[in-house]
């Protein structure tokens, strides 16, 4: 399940950043990816919501880009959403 989420999330990020070579690990943070600013963050959330058919609350969207957050925590939040869907 985690691997599947990772693969799908990476494919969403490649699409949003228009970079087919983009590779992310659990420890990758938003700061380490060029162009992941507040605006791009919303674009990522929209793409993730559409691809995974989930909905994030305002506080969750903000929390996903907080200090200490990374792809691993993004995946955990996503997995939690998918489990309660």
């Amino acid at each position: 399940m985690t691997n599947e989420i990772h693969g799908r999330l990476q494919s969403v990020l490649r699409e949003v950043f228009d970079d087919p070579e983009l590779t992310v690990a659990d420890a990758t943070t938003a700061d380490q990816i060029d162009g992941w600013d507040s605006l791009m963050h919303v674009n990522i959330i929209i793409a993730v919501e559409q691809r995974f058919r989930v909905k994030f609350a305002a506080a969750e969207i903000a929390g996903l880009k907080d200090k200490g957050q990374n792809i691993g925590t993004f995946k955990q939040a996503l997995a939690k959403k998918l489990a309660t869907r």
């Binding site: 507040s38 919303v42 929209i46 506080a59 969207i61 903000a62």
Partner: peptide, 18 residues
């Protein structure tokens, strides 16, 4: 500014972009 981002800008832009 984070309040404005989270409760004004993001919902507004998200609604438009969707």
């Amino acid at each position: 500014s984070f309040w404005i981002r989270d409760y004004l800008f993001t919902p507004l832009y998200k609604a438009i972009a969707e």
